[in-house]
Deep mutational scan, measured.
Amino acid sequence: RKEMTAACTPRRRIINLTSVLSLQEEINEQGHEVLREMLHNHSFVGCVNPQWALAQHQTKLYLLNTTKLSEELFYQILIYDFANFGVLRLSEPAPLFDLAMLALDSPESGWTEEDGPKEGLAEYIVEFLKKKAEMLADYFSLEIDEEGNLIGLPLLIDNYVPPLEGLPIFILRLATEVNWDEEKECFESLSKECAMFYSIRKQYISEESTLSGQQSEVPGSIPNSWKWTVEHIVYKALRSHILPPKHFTEDGNILQLANLPDLYKVFERC
């Protein structure tokens, strides 16, 4: 597991931080080997919608929660590849102030007048994250320049770009939802926020969305749709870069829909 690298990086740093090793061990302890084997050997059937997909393993048909699986995938990559990410360069710098204002204007932020003026909160978020810029760049390849612009994001899987519609809320939550006081809790909560931002979430995906850094293989055609990215990038990574937690067998994120021999018997009677 320590050699797990989802995106190509030129050289690998050895990380011996106790906090990170502890988080890696927790993933191992909570892992479910049968689910790992199923995901490793599954045959992708198709997307139901951005949140759900169908896959077959041996004779069984499964309904998989793409949102939760991708979130767990990105969390584990962030923990196992800690401080070893490439950088996704933004085509132009994104001012943190503008991103924070967009987030505060969104109902998702939960902002009320009692929280104070949005401009003041946005300025605080910019200054707060600028103070964390060195650590964010060093460990997470999340790059913020001296003017308070976001200029780079971590490359977690080759050819995958997170849904940038979720970027404003991500920046807001970096400042408000991460435990910045304790090292282990900081790395864990920061990785979880980043994983949620990178995950496939239906509120940020339309039929026209593209999450891939590449064009489709047909010359002159439109960019790959999110469905292509889910199948050929995300579920491909799920084959080798995730140890599913045991609770996925109990919380409805992986559901067995049918045993195909039983279905064949039904059709034979028709």
Rank of each mutant, 00 (worst) to 15 (best):
V87R: 09
S240P: 08
K2Q: 12
F187Y: 02
Q256H: 12
L17Q: 07
L63Q: 09
P107C: 07
P163E: 08
N179I: 08
T18R: 09
G148Q: 03
I144Y: 01
E183D: 03
H57D: 09
P219G: 10
T66C: 03
G166R: 05
E108W: 03
P154Y: 00
K118S: 15
W111N: 03
I144H: 01
L255Y: 13
K227G: 06
K184L: 07
K184T: 04
G148V: 02
A53P: 00
M38W: 15
F187T: 05
G46A: 03
G213R: 08
L99H: 03
V45L: 03
L69H: 09
T66S: 09
I171D: 00
K227I: 10
L129T: 03
L150I: 12
I151W: 12
A7C: 10
P10G: 11
Q215T: 10
S225F: 12
E3L: 12
Y62D: 00
L190F: 15
P10D: 11
T18E: 05
Q24A: 13
R269W: 15
D115A: 09
S106K: 02
G220E: 09
V45N: 13
R201I: 07
P95M: 04
G120F: 15
P261F: 14
G152R: 06
R12D: 14
L35Y: 03
L255M: 06
Q51I: 13
Q203M: 10
S199Y: 00
Y204G: 11
F97C: 02
L54Y: 09
M135S: 04
F44D: 01
L39A: 09
E193S: 08
I205Y: 08
L35D: 10
F82S: 02
M4R: 06
S191M: 02
L54N: 01
P219T: 05
C186H: 03
E250Y: 15
S206K: 07
L129A: 01
R89F: 15
E119H: 15
P117C: 15
S225P: 07
H57K: 11
V20L: 05
V45P: 00
I205R: 06
G252M: 10
P93F: 02
P10F: 12
I15Y: 11
L142H: 01
M38P: 03
P163F: 03
H32N: 11
K68T: 04
E165H: 04
L129Q: 00
P10C: 14
W52Y: 04
G120N: 14
R269G: 14
S240V: 09
Q30H: 05
S22C: 12
E3Q: 11
D98T: 08
K130V: 14
L238P: 00
E165Y: 02
L35A: 09
G46F: 01
W111H: 02
D105A: 14
S212Y: 08
D181C: 04
C8D: 09
S141A: 10
E185P: 13
I200H: 10
P50S: 08
F44Q: 04
I79K: 15
E123R: 02
Y235T: 05
E177W: 15
L167F: 09
K192D: 09
S212F: 10
P163H: 07
Q51W: 08
V218R: 09
S22A: 12
D262N: 10
T9C: 11
L238S: 11
D262C: 06
S141V: 07
E231G: 14
I27K: 14
G152D: 01
P107R: 06
Y75M: 10
A6L: 13
D115V: 15
D115K: 01
A94M: 04
